[in-house]
Design a protein around this nucleic acid. Structure first.
Lengths: 239, 239
DNA sequence: CGTCGGGTTGAGTCCATTCAACTTCGGTGG
DNA sequence: CCACCGAAGTTGAATGGACTCAACCCGACG
């Protein structure tokens, strides 16, 4: 059941059997959320962190004028709020974009892992560091890429991340978001988001219908995006 | 000499004498960099992480068209690349924006801290988590704030962070960057950056001359920025 | 069959960009 | 001492990108 977590952590360094059972003991209390529901509320002080087993979720902030900005997309095998273990107070919310099945990690148990299992601690720390690396890539995309390139980059990133946890189907993956939600990822208006999507479609590198994205030309998509997966740390080495 | 590091880590939770001496033993090998020099090169695999003792630095990425985007600003007491300890390969560069004095932390020593000093490990982990929280705030600013509000938010953030490490002077702080560099923070053209600065100046909330920013109306600046410092985790509690 | 949420398209406005000129100021050399 | 120079800041004008407002299409669903 924790296969996606093992795939996610295990891609960076090997996970011993002991560590796998520590993780199995750590994760308890499965829950489900409907699309649109808050998984974690802004301002709360959760006593546990949440791992996604199935579904798509996103971190977000809402401004005074009602504008919403997503700051990340979370897929199966991702902790949506592992940092809350040390940051304590959530400064933003986490919402389910599709029906989500999740499982929880008590902060008291996480703490005891940091006291007793240094290598596993480093792997969990690493998970939050990759989170940060993705954030930096998003900042670059928002600041200096064209909107089409930004969208292409997002698709590259999602495809590669989903591949790790075996949620791709050939060159296709399921992306259960509306254009309005995607606009809140890129920081655009809905109308303009629609035009950017059309532009990428018309260039013939992707198809997107029925909430399924198909990459028609992976090479060209990467070129448009200037995608370099280094930031995802997808190499297995001692950490 | 490590006072700014102690101030930085110590604002979140208390640092024991043992931990302070562990940190003193960790940080060795002082170096200096001139403004414009790379402190860490993109693509490198450093064997140590770098702490700023004095000066201003920034993480950045450069795109194929020559566009540059800063993804963070680093002040005294900040590790510029603590995550390299586990990420291994730098996917971006770190540049000195003003003359910088730094000191290094061998990754081998960091590793032994994770093996022997769990509480200090958590505080170092926390440092990288706040890094991530700042990234998320930048993403929100880039995506959904007006440019004036974004700039105001940046000034609020810098002021608060500099205050923690005692680098403010009343309501003023030193900001040794050109408007072109600031444009690479906000993702704007130089010309427009100049106009956004003018707008903020004309609203009477800040003055900026001789590389020194003075906050004239802290209340109103925070309003314009919708600044909420929660994300900086500036409370002392057990971590 | 009507309604509703999501997607698409057109038109006009505003924001941000580029290109270009001009100013200010500190430094440097005649 | 001042004339010159270059880097940084400022301003104007024109272009193009992104926004809003509005209409319309379409498929799912009651």
């Amino acid at each position: 059941m924790l296969e996606s977590l093992f795939l996610n952590l295990g891609q960076h360094d090997s996970l011993s059997d002991d560590e796998q059972s520590l993780l199995g003991n750590l994760m308890t209390g499965e829950r489900s959320f409907a699309a649109g529901q808050d998984i974690v509320a802004s301002g709360s002080r959760p006593a546990y962190s949440t791992l996604i087993l199935d579904g798509l979720a996103a971190r977000y902030k809402v401004l005074a004028d009602g504008g919403r900005q997503f700051t990340s997309l979370q897929i199966p095998g991702d902790f949506v709020d592992l940092y809350a273990f040390l940051l304590k107070t959530m400064d933003h919310g986490v919402i389910a974009l599709s029906p989500c099945r999740v499982i929880l990690a008590d902060h008291s148990k996480l703490r005891s892992i940091t006291e007793r299992a240094p290598h596993l601690t480093r792997l969990l720390w690493l998970d939050t560091l990759i989170d940060g690396a993705i954030h930096r890539e998003w900042i670059v995309a928002m600041g200096r890429r064209s909107k089409v390139s930004h969208l292409a980059h997002l698709f590259c990133e999602l495809f590669v991340r989903l591949q790790v946890v075996k949620r791709t189907n050939g060159m296709s993956f399921h992306l259960p978001v509306s254009q309005a939600e995607l606009a809140d990822v890129l920081g655009l208006s809905v109308v303009h988001m629609n035009r950017v999507i059309s532009a990428l479609r018309n260039s013939g590198v992707i198809a997107w219908a029925n909430h399924t994205v198909t990459i028609l030309d992976w090479q060209k998509l990467q070129q448009i995006a200037e995608f370099d997966p280094t930031y995802l740390s997808m190499t297995r080495e001692p950490r």
